[in-house]
Simulated scan of single mutants.
Amino acid sequence: MKNWKSIIGLAVVLLFTLSLDVQAFSWYDHKELKVTIETEDIIYEWEYENPDSFEYEEGNTIVRAEKAKESFDSVLTFIDLNKSIIDDDTIFNLEESGYDNIKNVVVKRVDRNEYKQSWIWTRDVE
């Protein structure tokens, strides 16, 4: 009986792990991806070119390779590329995570089939 509990427990852990992998962002589905967030004070920019070129700019500071990929992964937790627009909830969440006073966000993607997509969000001028 103990063996069955262990096997069932292991199966549950394995299924949970596999479901996390399915939800992970797939860089290889993209040929190019660029995200720009402009705040009142600074411009942030992430760029990816397949297969493994990552760059992150914050003002005049440029970071490349793994640190840039980690930053890109982080910002993509807020931006859902499966949605047709960047909505106000996305902007709220970005601002809550530290990107204060966002003026606009631009996302440009070229997938591996050369299909181009753009998302643009601009704060309404009051």
Rank of each mutant, 00 (worst) to 15 (best):
R64Y: 00
N3C: 03
F54K: 00
L94V: 13
K2C: 10
E58V: 09
D73L: 10
A65D: 15
E126T: 13
I62M: 11
F16C: 13
S71V: 01
E66H: 12
D100L: 04
E96F: 15
E47P: 06
E45R: 15
L76Q: 04
R64K: 12
K69A: 04
V75K: 01
D111R: 03
K103D: 01
A68S: 09
I62N: 11
K103E: 01
Y99P: 10
E47G: 12
D73S: 11
M1E: 11
K103Q: 02
T39W: 08
V107N: 00
I42D: 14
I37S: 08
R112W: 06
I62Y: 09
L33D: 00
K83Q: 13
W4E: 07
N104T: 07
N113W: 08
T39D: 07
L20K: 12
A68H: 02
I7M: 12
D124G: 10
S71L: 11
I43C: 04
I43K: 06
L33G: 00
T17H: 05
D52N: 09
L14N: 01
K34S: 15
K31L: 08
R123V: 13
K108N: 14
R109N: 06
A68K: 00
V110K: 13
Q117G: 02
S71K: 11
A24Y: 09
D89H: 04
A11L: 14
N50I: 00
S19P: 03
V125C: 05
D88K: 07
L14C: 04
L10C: 11
S84H: 08
L15F: 12
Q23K: 15
I7H: 07
V107M: 04
K67Q: 11
T122H: 09
D41T: 14
K108F: 09
T61W: 12
E58N: 14
I91K: 07
E66G: 05
I86Q: 08
I79D: 12
D80N: 06
